[in-house]
Amino acid sequence: MDKQKIALTIILFCFGIIITTQYHSHVSFSSDLGNLEQEELAVMARELTTQKRLLDSEINDLEKRLNEVADTNASSIVILENLRSDLVSLNKLNGTIEVKGPGVLITIEEEAPIIYTDLVKIVNELWNSGAEAIAVNDNRVTASSYFYQSDLTYQMTIDAVILDPPFVIKALGNPDVLKTGLELPGGIIDEFITYDIKPEITTIPELFIPASDKKIDFSYARAVQ
């Protein structure tokens, strides 16, 4: 190999190193913002600003949608909860669910000479004293409950269910208020005493009142809007 080739090989070898070094340096140089021309930077800034504005408006849109979705969700949850509590209230009112709580227990002994109107009076008085649920011999008294007494057998009924003595009336509510209401001077208990009937009234911290199994169907009554 002659000198020419050796020399050329040497410088081409060096040139190879130089060209790759230049390449590496240029790549890192170009990616460094500080080395860019002002015009280039201005163009870049403008493009980035436009992009930022677009992205900002996208963020706004998405946030708005998120809020909408969250609102819809929240309001439907609130509605659902309201409906649920309404349903529970209505169930309690209609006697379609078992309820428990403090209240009074009125026991009328077997021999007591009472008629069905006495039961009606007691129930009336209990409602009047703020009772929230009443049951007679574990028959729930509902809005459409009725008391009756057979003319022949003198058997009393509630909603056509025969009531056998002793009569146990459970009322759920403030026990003291209920008791006081019954024992008011000139009230139902006073009246009973006249007939020598002595109902036993006890306040109970936790009473269970069963649900009514009556179904309420409305065929005629329609809601007035």
Binding site: L8, L12, F13, G16, I17, T20
Partner: peptide, 12 residues
Amino acid sequence: PFIGLFIGAAIG
């Protein structure tokens, strides 16, 4: 010489 160039480029 071109082999030299490529070796140099590779090293660089």
